[in-house]
Design a protein around this nucleic acid. Structure first.
Length: 110
DNA sequence: GCAATGACTGGTA
DNA sequence: TTACCAGCCATTG
């Protein structure tokens, strides 16, 4: 169930798709904007980011990072706290996620 | 239709 | 790692 963080207008089906994917990302794993865009099969990474910017407040947005492993702009510190709490594979000496391990393929392992 | 903007992506320096 | 450029898709003015 996706609900708005405030009395804003209801999201479109595309928005529900994106938010739904973000919600099913397991802890300790992440997905890039481009991956989600392909997962839903609609729009592109910019559209996913746009949806997150408006409705990301109701989903584990920190599990959505850029292709480089960097978290959302303006929320890096917030994301870092979650990564440490979920045991997300991070790169040493950097505040970025190890996409080589943290990148979720949309499957729980099988 | 054109120009500007955006929680993006890949290549090059 | 950071900075610049070109490409991509949709929204807004």
């Amino acid at each position: 169930m996706i609900e708005a963080p405030s009395e804003e207008a209801a999201p479109d089906q595309y928005t529900e798709e994106v938010l739904s994917v973000v919600e099913l990302i397991p802890a300790g794993r992440v997905m890039s904007y481009g991956d989600i865009a392909e997962y839903v099969g609609r729009g592109g990474p910019r559209q996913v980011g746009a949806v997150m910017s408006h409705w990301g407040g109701g989903v584990p947005w920190w599990r959505v990072v850029r292709a480089d492993g960097r978290p959302a702009a303006g929320h890096e510190v917030r994301a870092l706290s979650h990564y440490a709490a979920e045991g997300t594979p991070m790169r040493p000496r950097t505040d970025r996620v190890d996409m080589s391990q943290a990148r979720w393929d949309g499957r729980t392992g099988g």
